[in-house]
Write a protein that binds this DNA or RNA. Structure first.
Length: 428
RNA sequence: GGAGCUGUGGCCGAGAGGCUGAAGGCGGCGGUUUGCUAAACCGUUAUAGGAUCAAAAGUCCUAUCGAGGGUUCGAAUCCCUCCGGCUCCGCCA
C-alpha cells in the first residue's frame, strides 16, 4: 500500500517509479480521488464539530434542568440529522475508491534496481561454485527419480492430478533432511527464530502481505473462507500485524519450514514435468522485521543466509538482482538465487529474497516506536526463501548423480540421513 | 457442535448515556536527592487523519475503549452482526 502523502508530495517521483515498472502514470487520477476524499472529510468534520458543540451544551442545559434551552438547541441541530449520515456515506465511498485504487498498485522499485521489461534485464551479481564435469550425459531429476523408483508422479496424478508428486523412501527422507538442515543453519548460525505457523489464514492476512486483492486466482481457498498459504511469508509476516513494536525489538527474524500451496493458474505449460513447479511444495522461509535504517543491510544478510545453505551443500549457484519488470508486486528490490541444474544445463531459481520496505507494513498496520523521538513509524518487512526444499532436492539429485543412477549425498546432510552416503535404486 | 463469560491506552486495570481521551497502577521520559547503583519524591507521557502553512513549528478541528453497523441532540457505556480470547460440556489426534 502506498503512502498517499508521499504521492501528494512527490507525484512526479511516484509516476517515474511506475514507469520504471512498465506502468502508466497514475498520480493525477489518484490525487483527484484524494482531493475528493479530503474535501468531503473536511465538510463532515465541520458538521461534527457543530454537533459536538451543541450536544455538549444540551448536556449542560439538562444538568441545570433548563429544559427549554435544551429543546431549543436540539431543534437547532435537527437538520444535521440527515446531513451527517449522508456525508459520512460519501466520505466512506471516496475513501473506498481511493483504497481500492491504491491497493492495486505495486511497490515502487528501489533506485539501484536495474530497469527492464522482464527477466532478460536481470543482473548477475555473483557466481559461486563451478559446475562439476560429468563424463556421462546428465539426467534430469525426474529421470533420476525414475531410476531410483522413489519419485512417483503417476500415483500422485491418480489421487490429485497434475503438479503433485509422491516421494518415497530415501527421497522422502531427503526432503526431511534438507528441511532440518536448513532450519538448523538458519536458527543456529543466523539467529532466526523457528516458528510453526498456521497454514490456513483469513482474507486480512493475505491482504496484508499483498496476495489479495490482486492475486486471488493464484491461491487455493477453502469452502469456508480460509486461504492456504502460498508461502510462510504470509503467516510469518502477519505475526506483527496491528502492533506497535519497540525499536529495541528490531530486527526480528523468523524462519519456518512449511508446505506452500499455489494454483499457478497463469503458468500452464511451464515446467510441466517434474518437481520444479508444483501445486504443493515445501519451503524454508525467512522473514525479517526491521527499521527503515536496517532494512538494506538486512536484505544483504538474508541473501547471504540462503546462499550459505547452497555453499554448504556444495551446489553451484549465481545470484541475480531482478529488474524492475521481473519483481513481485510487494517488492522494492529482489535478489534471486539460481542453482545450477546439470540436467537442464541451466541455472534455475531456488530462492527469492525481497525487501518490501513499508509496503506490507502499511497494509498490516505494523509499526514501531523509535527509541528517540516521538510518534511511530511503519516497520520494514523482508522475506525470502531460505531455500525451496523441493527445488533443492532437484539440485542435489542432478548435481550429485552418478553414471549408474545412484546419487551421492552431500556430507552435511548425512547426519540427517542416518549416516547414509548414497541413494541407490529402491530394491537394489 | 452446545452453554456461559469476556475484549478499555505500550502493559495491567476502573468506568455502565453528557462533566471521560478516558481514574489508579506499571513501564517510559525529565528533574530533585545521590560516592555509584537502588529506593523515594516531583513533573511529564496515546495514536491517526484533516484544516491552516512555501515548509517546519505552532494553532484549530475530527476520529479512535476488538471490528462494522444501528438507536440518540449526544455512546467506552444501549441494540444487532462479525472477529478474537476464557470456562464448562460433547467430539476428536
Amino acid at each position: 500500500m502506498h503512502d498517499i502523502r508521499f504521492i501528494r508530495d512527490n507525484p512526479l517521483a511516484f509516476d517515474e517509479g511506475l514507469t520504471r515498472r512498465g506502468l502508466q502514470p497514475m498520480s493525477r487520477d489518484i490525487l483527484s480521488l484524494d482531493q475528493e476524499w479530503r474535501t468531503t472529510t473536511a465538510r463532515l468534520q465541520e458538521m461534527q464539530s457543530v454537533r459536538n458543540d451543541a450536544s455538549k451544551r444540551i448536556g449542560q442545559a439538562k444538568a441545570q434542568k433548563n429544559e427549554a434551552e435544551a429543546q431549543r438547541l436540539m431543534a437547532e441541530v435537527a437538520r444535521l440529522k440527515d446531513e451527517v449520515p449522508a456525508t459520512e456515506q460519501r466520505v466512506r465511498e471516496s475513501e473506498e475508491a481511493l483504497n481500492e485504487r491504491l491497493s492495486a498498485i505495486p511497490n515502487l522499485p528501489a533506485v539501484d534496481v536495474p530497469d527492464g521489461a522482464d527477466e532478460t534485464a536481470n543482473k548477475e551479481i555473483r557466481r559461486v561454485g563451478t559446475p562439476r564435469t560429468m563424463n556421462f550425459a546428465a539426467k534430469q531429476h525426474f529421470d533420476i527419480g525414475e531410476v531410483l523408483k522413489q519419485m512417483d508422479f503417476e500415483a500422485a496424478g491418480k489421487m490429485s492430478g497434475a503438479r503433485f508428486v509422491v516421494l518415497r523412501g530415501q527421497l522422502a527422507r531427503l526432503e526431511r533432511a534438507l528441511g532440518n538442515f536448513m532450519l538448523d543453519v538458519h536458527t543456529g548460525t543466523f539467529g532466526y527464530l523457528e516458528v510453526v505457523p498456521p497454514l490456513l489464514v483469513r482474507d486480512q492476512a493475505m491482504y496484508g502481505t499483498a496476495q489479495l486483492p490482486k492475486f486471488r486466482e493464484e491461491q487455493f481457498g477453502t469452502t469456508n473462507g480460509y486461504w492456504l498459504i502460498p508461502t510462510a511469508e504470509v503467516s510469518l509476516t502477519n505475526q506483527v500485524r496491528e502492533q506497535i513494536l519497540d525499536e529495541a525489538q528490531l530486527p526480528m527474524r523468523f524462519t519456518a519450514w512449511t508446505p506452500c500451496f499455489r494454483s499457478e493458474a497463469g503458468a500452464a505449460g511451464k515446467d510441466t514435468r517434474g518437481m520444479i513447479r508444483m501445486h504443493q511444495f515445501s519451503k524454508v522461509e525467512l522473514v525479517s522485521i526491521t527499521t527503515p535504517e536496517q532494512s538494506e543491510a538486512e536484505h544483504e544478510r538474508m541473501v547471504g543466509c540462503a546462499e550459505e545453505i547452497l555453499k554448504r551443500l556444495g551446489l553451484p549457484f549465481r545470484t541475480m538482482v531482478l529488474s524492475t519488470g521481473d519483481m513481485g508486486f510487494a517488492a522494492r528490490k529482489t535478489y534471486d538465487i539460481e542453482v545450477w541444474l546439470p540436467g537442464q544445463n541451466t541455472y534455475r531459481e531456488i530462492s527469492s529474497c525481497s525487501n518490501c520496505g513499508d509496503f506490507q507494513a502499511r497494509r498490516m498496520e505494523a509499526r514501531y516506536r523509535p527509541v528517540a523521538g516521538k510518534g511511530t513509524q511503519f516497520v520494514h518487512t523482508l522475506n525470502g526463501s531460505g531455500l525451496a526444499v523441493g527445488r533443492t532436492m532437484v539440485a542435489v539429485l542432478e548435481n550429485f548423480q552418478q553414471a549408474d543412477g545412484s546419487v551421492t549425498i552431500p556430507e552435511v546432510l548425512r547426519p540427517h540421513m542416518g549416516g547414509l552416503d548414497v541413494i541407490v535404486p529402491h530394491g537394489a
